Amino acid sequence: MSIQHFRVALIPFFAAFCLPVFAHPETLVKVKDAEDQLGARVGYIELDLNSGKILESFRPEERFPMMSTFKVLLCGAVLSRVDAGQEQLGRRIHYSQNDLVEYSPVTEKHLTDGMTVRELCSAAITMSDNTAANLLLTTIGGPKELTAFLHNMGDHVTRLDRWEPELNEAIPNDERDTTMPAAMATTLRKLLTGELLTLASRQQLIDWMEADKVAGPLLRSALPAGWFIADKSGAGERGSRGIIAALGPDGKPSRIVVIYTTGSQATMDERNRQIAEIGASLIKHW
């Protein structure tokens, strides 16, 4: 067993022997301040990774656009098919120029040779490549099948209805392509620590998230040296922004954090800054 596999296998073990965790309302004060600064709703939840206990939450059962955070769930569904012998990570998928959609920095470079399922998941999570996500959605049967996968996990809230990039439209009061912070946090925890996926697939999923290259201005910008984070960000229309993450000190994750916002007129930089400040408060009061 590799060191990384050992780390993920012992996530519940280490967490069980940690000192009790206590909620700190100071972080919620910052979440509410972010709402004021952005002029928009902000949803927040913080779960203990081992027990699933909610440590703090704000608007945990209000719907927010998922945006690209759905790509972690998508690759979880792909990995479940791999575990069941219905898919192979090494299978190569070929596609054409007509398949390319807006923001496809990886797939646009491989029109000639195609990409493997493993490479597509890596591109979808680490670079948020939209064509990679659409190609992977095709392998599982489309958005409705991802929703069905989530329902089978016990998540009857999260739903995907459309493809990239239309799913980022974020129309107010439109339930399409949305989740709730509580539902997303619980589902992410199941994917990373539950028995739904094999140990190898859980490790692969967290490795992809740990290698995320496009979430630097968010929670990662607030992390002290030595902290662990595996995350996936999302951005959408109407001032929408979000991030889902597993993080913790001492090089291992111990909490799940989900943050979503929508309806702001603020710039992307300002949305990023507010999420980073929430992260800084979380870490300060850990």
Rank of each mutant, 00 (worst) to 15 (best):
N168V: 10
A246W: 11
R271L: 10
M67F: 13
S240I: 02
N134F: 08
E145A: 09
V29Y: 04
F70V: 12
R202I: 15
A40P: 05
E108P: 14
Q204C: 14
A222N: 03
V101H: 03
D36A: 04
L136V: 10
A222T: 06
A222R: 04
N168A: 08
V214S: 04
L135R: 08
V214H: 13
L146V: 05
R63G: 12
V82M: 13
F228S: 14
E237A: 08
V31D: 01
A34E: 06
V258F: 02
W163N: 09
H285Y: 06
Y44T: 04
M184Y: 05
E166A: 14
I256R: 00
E169M: 08
M184A: 03
R81Y: 08
E169L: 04
F58Q: 08
R238T: 04
T267H: 06
M66Y: 08
M66F: 13
I93M: 15
G52Q: 14
I275C: 11
L199M: 15
I93F: 15
L100E: 14
W208N: 14
T179E: 00
T131D: 02
T262V: 10
T187P: 01
I54S: 11
L247V: 05
A245F: 09
R241H: 08
L79C: 11
S51Y: 08
A123E: 08
E210S: 13
K53M: 15
K109E: 05
Q86M: 03
G43M: 01
G43H: 01
L73H: 06
V29F: 06
R159M: 12
P181V: 04
K53S: 11
S96Q: 10
D33L: 02
S80L: 15
P143S: 11
P105L: 06
L120Y: 03
E108D: 10
V72E: 02
L49K: 06
K213G: 05
L150S: 10
H151E: 05
R41P: 09
D33G: 02
V42P: 00
D207M: 10
P224Y: 04
F149C: 06
R159P: 00
G90R: 10
H110Y: 14
V72Y: 01
K53T: 07
H94E: 05
V117L: 13
L196D: 14
M268C: 08
G236L: 03
L150M: 15
G226A: 07
E175V: 05
L135S: 07
S240C: 14
A200H: 05
G52I: 04
L160Y: 13
N152Q: 07
A133N: 02
D269E: 06
S68R: 00
R162C: 12
H24Y: 04
I256F: 03
Q265C: 09
N130A: 11
V72M: 02
K53N: 11
R202V: 08
E26S: 11
R159C: 08
T147Q: 05
V101A: 04
I140F: 12
S104I: 14
Q88Y: 08
D269Q: 05
H156R: 09
G226I: 03
A266Q: 11
N272E: 08
E164F: 00
S240F: 08
A84M: 08
T193E: 02
D83T: 03
L196R: 14
G239H: 14
D113Q: 03
T186Y: 12
E62C: 02
L111A: 05
L205F: 06
A132H: 01
P165S: 10
C121S: 04
Y95V: 04
S122N: 07
V101Y: 05
W227E: 01
D250V: 04
I45A: 12
K71S: 00
N173D: 09
A123M: 07
M184V: 04
S128Y: 00
S80A: 12
M115Q: 07
S240Y: 11
I283Y: 02
K232T: 01
L73S: 09
L196G: 08
R220G: 11
G76H: 08
L49S: 10
F149S: 07
E195H: 13
T261Q: 05
T186N: 15
L218C: 04
F64H: 01
A132R: 00
R91I: 07
G43D: 00
M153I: 03
T116E: 15
N272A: 14
L28F: 05
L146N: 13
I256Y: 04
I275T: 11
L137Y: 12
P253A: 07
N98R: 10
N98A: 10
N173Y: 14
W208M: 12
N173S: 11
P181A: 10
A124V: 15
T193S: 06
V29S: 13
S57H: 07
T131W: 03
F58D: 15
I256A: 07
V106R: 15
M209F: 10
E195A: 12
L150F: 15
I45E: 06
A133Y: 01
I244D: 00
